[in-house]
Design a binder for these strands. Structure first.
Lengths: 155, 155
DNA sequence: GTATGTGCAAAACGTTTGCAAGTTC
DNA sequence: GAACTTGCAAACGTTTTGCACATAC
């Protein structure tokens, strides 16, 4: 799939500002990793990142990958998902309106969708219970229609 | 909190029938563990179970606890949740209509709620995308109002 | 020059598995 | 007694951490 390049220069600036703000330093590793994560069009795991850089011949240590991810989470520039597939999945927030996910229980397919009904529902429920909303996560587990996915459509 | 005892005898029978059905055997460990899980009014982790039995002086091995949990999941008598708190949480299905969760991001409080709007929403979305619904999970992350929970209400 | 970041290997965590000994049917 | 279950410890996959060395400011 062709990647239509997003302009991430503004967000890179935000990132660097946040770094300095907190007394952290700008390094080539952080730059490269953050650039990759901001440009990624998919949900990715820590391992995806490491593997990508390894395959390009640029070694990054797992530790650094996780440290950068945690930095971005702290800055609110990355969102974490738990799709029940073992590892955590991440996704940057650039130009993404809030969305939820359809997850195939058999294969790795994850589809995003947006539905305004949920936002209203969420507000209604939190108002009723008197809590302060921070975020929500709606996952609908489905069986998808990919050809390579029929293998467990028993029951 | 006083526990109002539920009658689980019917479900214990179901459990034993399913065991025999699949050529598995009934053992004292399974009985005790399943009884505890069916009687539990809370979401629990594998560790909660192990700890409970240890504290009572009845040793159970972690392996057996996990094996029983997986058995109940296989039988559809237990539901698994991922609340982003590290370990998996489990909950029996007895007398529980489907519900979703409010999760405090700071403390361990998890509140259940029922809202019919979600069911309709779920159907609408799956119909639109042409997938077969298996289940859904709506989690609303909030900050709760427990006294022991104010400690991270900054930002 | 000091504080912070990196990479490595080791540890930590929740969960699963191989195997010898014990139980159930 | 054949098949299944248990408990232990070892293995697992993901994520974190301690530490010596390297880098940014």
């Amino acid at each position: 799939m062709a990647i239509d390049p997003i302009d991430i220069s503004e967000e890179m600036t935000t990132f660097k500002e946040k770094l300095l703000d907190k007394g952290y330093k700008s390094t080539p590793q952080r730059d490269e990793l953050v650039k990759w994560m901001f440009t990624s069009h998919e949900h990715f795991t820590a391992d995806d990142v490491t593997e990508y850089f390894r395959s390009k011949g640029n070694k990054v240590s797992t530790a650094t990958v996780y440290r950068v991810i945690n930095l971005l989470l702290e800055f609110g520039l990355l969102i974490q998902h738990d799709f029940g597939k073992g590892a955590k999945y991440f996704e940057h927030i650039l130009g993404h309106e809030h969305h939820d996910h359809l997850i195939c229980i058999n294969c790795d397919q994850i589809i995003e969708f947006v539905d305004n009904g949920i936002e209203k529902l969420q507000e209604r429920i939190c108002k009723k219970h008197g809590f302060k909303i921070k975020s929500h996560s709606l996952k609908i587990f489905v069986e998808c229609t990919k050809k390579n996915c029929e293998y467990r459509s028993k029951d």
